[in-house]
Design a protein around this nucleic acid. Sequence first.
DNA 1: ACCTGAACACCGTTCAAGT
DNA 2: ACCTGAACACCGTTCAAGT
Lengths: 215, 215
Amino acid sequence: MVLRRADVVDGALELLDAEGLDGLTMRKLGAALNVQGGALYRHFPSKEALLDAMAERLLAGVGAPLPAEMPWLDQCREMAERLRVQLLSRRDGARVVAGTYVSGPNTMTAGGRAIELLSSVGFPPEEAAWITFAFFYFVLGHTIEEQALVRLDPAHGWEARLAEAQPVPSPALASAMLAMAKADPAERFRYGVRLFLAGVERRLEELRADGTSGV
Amino acid sequence: MVLRRADVVDGALELLDAEGLDGLTMRKLGAALNVQGGALYRHFPSKEALLDAMAERLLAGVGAPLPAEMPWLDQCREMAERLRVQLLSRRDGARVVAGTYVSGPNTMTAGGRAIELLSSVGFPPEEAAWITFAFFYFVLGHTIEEQALVRLDPAHGWEARLAEAQPVPSPALASAMLAMAKADPAERFRYGVRLFLAGVERRLEELRADGTSGV
DNA sequence: ACCTGAACACCGTTCAAGT
DNA sequence: ACCTGAACACCGTTCAAGT
């Protein structure tokens, strides 16, 4: 029973769920696949390359075609939702993706889909790319924090840290941050997406106003 | 010449510049401070605690008072600028901060300042906190990528990865991503900030429209 | 109180040798 | 071609013992 590249990635994602990113080691992964740690270097030149492949796998489906009849802002929301779901699908998934860059087909397809979508409604391709990446940063940052908060001792989580804070925060600040810690992360995410897309919409109106006289 | 907590943080930030986050080890830091690696555990309970203190130090000044006569949107921009500058002030600074949570006075002051600013123009405190964090995620994601790109071989950087991409990206996508890689990161950052703040502004108008009849 | 020296339990990675 | 076994050069962390 030979070990294929894809089997290694499968096993690594399983182990990621079990141990977290910090506990994911080549030796443990080898053991999970009934192989010595060093044997994995027949399939990947380094642990980093394996993590890249894991990140690629995590982004599967994010760039899948969107319903053409859907309004473009909803299509943007849908892509954001998909990306978040995929990043959260594995423990520390967001951190895994954050450590890698461009490369694989899933990543390219997803990025391409977003740039294409924004271009189709009137953004110059370059600006579409800027928007796509800015948006990606928000989603990544949000999901990294989401996954970090899950691992904090729920009782001794954010409330305790706030209580220990120096200087003592104002009551208004304290209650704002507490409310934030208690809020549903999915709702907070959707709020951020809405905010960002409102800015995108406004920018498009601006572009169209400039364009009507110029073109 | 005793070693103080602050001296360890100073040395760690120096070493961070020299070695990067991955090269920052307790043994090397000890050597830089003319001490055994293990001795550092008299000052910090763990490497993680040291990294937290480094993150705290990096955020110094971000929450400093803003000119009262400055329009609030410019104050928001100014805080974003400050945060970016601080994160970029040390090699891998953004990644250091991304690995930590709340806690210290600089962090609290900065967060408090932003929430206070947004509250003062009419956002409910809780919503102000949501906006602050969403914005923080974008800045962090952007600066992490900025610092990662600096370290990529400039010649074999993004262009080469794009050329190797599977499936081959459309010419439009390829040129969009190439233009993006060549663009001034500071300009791209300001663009993202503007986009986000346009959304914030629109949301505030919405709130005020609701409020006039309700209150 | 602060540091040394040495150890413990790990890492990622390499490589001759096996099958 | 793929894997084993063992090694190399490291890690973070602990702790008796020194000063």
